[in-house]
Amino acid sequence: MSVQHGSILTSQTQAGPFAGLATRLFGGNLRRADWIAFALLAPTLIFFSIGVLYPLFETIRVSFLDWTGLSQPKPAGFSNYTKLFSDANFWNALRVTLTWTLACTGISVAIGWSVALISGLAPKQTAPFRVAIFAAYGISETASGLMWLGILQPDFGLLNGILRLVGLEGWASPWLGEPSTAIWGVVAAYVWTQAGLPLLTCYAAIQAIPKSQLEAAHMDGASHFQILRYIMAPLSLPGVRIAIFINLLNSLKAFDMIHILTAGGPIRATETVGYFMYQESVIYFKQGYGAASTVVLLLAVIVCSIPLILDKASESK
C-alpha cells in the first residue's frame, strides 16, 4: 500500500497527477491506485457536479429560453444576449459594477495593507485594531447592513448626527437617497466588512518575512519608514495579490449589503450586475433574461480570475 501511495506521489511530482491516466482509463487497464484516487475524489466530484456544474449548465440552458417560470419555456436563441447588450439598464449595471468593484477592492485592500504594514512595525500595540478590523469581516453582511442603515439614515442617523453636532449641518445629507452619494454610502459599508481579509493576508505575508532581513536592515541604520517601504511593502505583495483577487470576486458577487441599504436604488444608482440579475429573475420573473445576465457575470468573474490562476500556475512551476 505504501509503495503504491508512493508511486502516485512520484507520478504527480514528475509529470503531473494525470500523467498516463487517460491512456490507462481509455485502455481499460486502470491500476488499483487509480481506483483509490477516483474513490477519494468521488464525493468531491459528486457534490461539485450537483452544486456547481448542474446549476451552471442549467443556467446556460435557461439563458437561451423565454420563460417566466410558469409558462411553457420557449426557445429564444441568442435574443436574451442581444437584448441584454442593447438594454440601457444593463449598461448602467455594468458601469455601477465597475465603479463598485474597483472602489470596494481598492479601498479595502488599501486599508487592509496599510494597517498590516503598520502592524508589522508595531505588532503588540496594534493588536486591538487588527482584531477589531478583522472582527467586522466575521459579521454577516445583513447585520452590518442594518447597522450602516442606522448610521446613514437621514434624520436620526449617526453620521448626520455627528455632522450636526460639530457644526457641519450643511454637510448632512440623505446619503442613501441621493443617486450621487448612495453608491459611496454602500461602498463605505461594504469596505467596513471586507477590509479584514486583506489585513489578514497582508499581515500573514509580513509575518513570513525572515526576521534576519529586518534585523539586518535595523543594523544598517534603516529607518522604520525605509523598512516599511523597501522591505515589508514589496515582500508582502503576494498577500496583496491574494487579497485583491478575493475582494474582487467578493465585490462582484456582493448582494446582501446592496439589498439592505438601497435595494439597487435610488433610480438604479446602486444596481450592480448581480442586483440586475436578481431583479430580472426574481422580481420581474424573466428567467431567461436573468440567466443571460448571470452568464455574463460569470464570464466577468472568470476573466478576473485568470491573472491569479496564471500567477499560481507559474508559481507552481
Binding site: 446613514l152 439614515q153 437621514p154 434624520d155 445629507s173 440623505p174 446619503w175 442613501l176 437617497g177 441621493e178 448612495a182 438601497t262 436604488g265 435610488p266 433610480i267
Partner: peptide, 10 residues
C-alpha cells in the same frame, strides 16, 4: 415634503 433624497431613502 422632505427633500427628494430623504423621501428616496425612507
Amino acid at each position: 415634503c422632505a427633500e427628494p433624497g430623504a423621501m428616496l431613502s425612507s
